[in-house]
Design a protein around this nucleic acid. Structure first.
Ligand SMILES: [Zn+2]
Ligand SMILES: [Zn+2]
Ligand SMILES: [Zn+2]
Ligand SMILES: [Zn+2]
Lengths: 162, 162
DNA sequence: CTATGTAATGTTATAATGTAACACTACATG
DNA sequence: CATGTAGTGTTACATTATAACATTACATAG
């Protein structure tokens, strides 16, 4: 289960290990090196399984030796370039991607109540954006969609809590 | 003409003055105070008529006396709360809104070649996002859409330049 | 008109995020 | 071994944003 809205502690070990396995395989395919540092950063990103900032990752790295900002940012840049993580612009944070094998720019559902996040890939949204931009005479190359709101489980709790 | 893709120097004085007039009127309606500082910041934002960072505005303020970051950020917060400007998350920058009277969260077309920006309000996009989110069990309250690409005039130039 | 309270701004310091520049190391290849 | 390249370490700094508290402007009540 890749969706943090649903992922339980037991599932979660699987989130991490399968993400790492996909990354290994993908990097072999692409002939790029998933070095120990890059692998470690990806592992940390998936351990959180929610948006996590560069400096939070840095602190964790520092618990096992020295580390400085450029190290983290380089690893994040690499992971992003391979599609293994996404950057959330509105949060200055990063999240693991569950479908790194097919390049995409997902849409992100950010729960304002529990801070969890889910990624969707909705053709309808992408087509609507492409059409809207072209209507304005603009040729889009890249879209960023971040949707704030309330996830299903928080909405249910909210309904019973109050 | 509010679109920076099109706005000429002559038009542009009108961009600024009409934006300020709309702001005055809107703030009177809402019974909030468009103080000299807030008005000045809004004027600077419209003078640029493209995404502008808080510290760029600060520097301009400092040319006419002292000013510190909180002053600018407070003015920007106020302007944003009244819908007079939008914040572009992917650029850490701000842009004047040409339709502050009706609340909305526009979609932004960011030209990667000339750094100009246009805002559109496309129902199709908003509906697609709303539908996509609800399909995932998510209740959206707020959407952020920033579209990178090439504006019409840059595309034409590119076609002839190369 | 003064007193009082609230909104707005000034001021200082600092937090949080991100990068430039250069040194060093690991590793492949000839 | 010599050489080149990719990756990482290290230092310093740039950029963006906010916390905390002092001061000022302005409205309204007495
Ligand atoms: Zn998980
Ligand atoms: Zn993804
Ligand atoms: Zn203009
Ligand atoms: Zn707008």
């Amino acid at each position: 289960m890749q969706d943090p809205f649903e992922c339980t502690p037991t599932d979660h070990q699987h989130c991490i290990s399968s993400a790492l396995a996909r990354a290994e395989s993908l990097c072999r395919q692409q002939q790029v090196r998933l070095t120990p540092m890059r692998r470690r950063v990806l592992e940390l990103v998936w351990q959180h399984h929610r948006p996590v900032g560069a400096y939070a990752l840095l602190e964790q790295l520092q618990q096992q030796g020295r580390a400085a900002p450029p190290t983290v940012y380089r690893a994040l840049d690499f992971l992003q370039s391979q599609g293994l993580i996404h950057r959330l612009e509105s949060l200055n944070a990063f999240i693991g991607c569950a479908q790194p094998h097919r390049p995409h720019q997902g849409q992100f559902l950010i729960c304002q109540s529990c801070q969890s996040l889910a990624e969707i890939t909705d053709d309808g949204i992408e087509r609507a954006i492409d059409a809207g931009a072209r209507t304005a005479g603009f040729t889009p190359s890249n879209q960023m969609v971040e949707i704030m709101g309330t996830c299903a489980s928080c909405r249910q709790q909210g309904a019973t809590d109050v």
